[in-house]
Design a binder for these strands. Structure first.
Lengths: 123, 123
DNA sequence: TGAATCGCTTTACATTGTCAAGTATATTTG
DNA sequence: CAAATATACTTGACAATGTAAAGCGATTCA
């Protein structure tokens, strides 16, 4: 009793996983090693990062290349399909620069304080 | 010791919250009431949905309009800024139809089985 | 020699999301 | 007329998910 297959829905399913968009954005700038990527993503802990990268490899968006085991040296880079996510990131970029400005924290302001000024600037 | 303000990063922060992209996509099709929206989003439970909608209202992407309290009748619709997220959804749509096809579940295949065929079709 | 780096994994804990049920009332159905 | 269904959520208990901190084995750097 599956629904019809909906590509957009599927895509959203994995894009909304925490850190995935950040990871993709980071990898669009070039291939990186694990720690390097971790730093550039910022805030994602290694356990989660490892899990996300595994998943992204499985679905074919990222490829992992191990250059040497000891000393460890690994590279994660986007596949062709992965690189095409650039359009998505670009769209987010355009929206963000058009609508977001410094000010209030965007992420989950605890709705308790006073009036809360929106981060969005009216068009 | 704040980082420089980066709009894209901020945007990703809220877009990656679970269900947000689904909610936006759904609302792009037109305003909806709570249960209606819940059904169209599919799988998000009311507690989470209520929380997400609150947040989306706070940051100015969604507006809530209460038509009557009893019987309850509410409408959620995108603001101008919200509607402009259409470009983001459209980009996801394009990517998805180009790269995803029915087959394996995309969401978190437990990496234990045999060889796992990717849902992505090569270009 | 000792610190830092590499790519992770492990464990314990905190945050987050979900299920199921419930609230108050109006409209629809039998 | 009574029951079912709908509306918009909230609540509480519980499960899934994410995180912090530490650590591993080895090499490079000062």
């Amino acid at each position: 009793m599956e629904q019809e297959f909906c590509p957009v829905h599927e895509a959203i399913q994995f894009l909304q996983e925490k850190w995935v968009l950040h990871i993709v954005r980071s990898l669009l700038e070039g291939p990186r090693g694990f720690n390097d990527l971790s730093r550039s993503v910022g805030g994602c802990n290694p356990a989660t990062l490892a899990q996300r990268l595994d998943h992204l490899c499985e679905i074919g968006v990222v490829r992992k290349e191990v250059q040497s085991l000891m000393p460890p040296r690994t590279f994660y880079h986007l596949t062709g399909a992965g690189r095409e996510l650039q359009d998505v990131i670009a769209a987010i970029d355009r929206w963000a620069t058009a609508h977001l400005r410094p000010g209030v924290e965007l992420s989950h302001p605890v709705c308790g304080g006073g009036e809360l000024q929106s981060t969005i600037r009216p068009v």
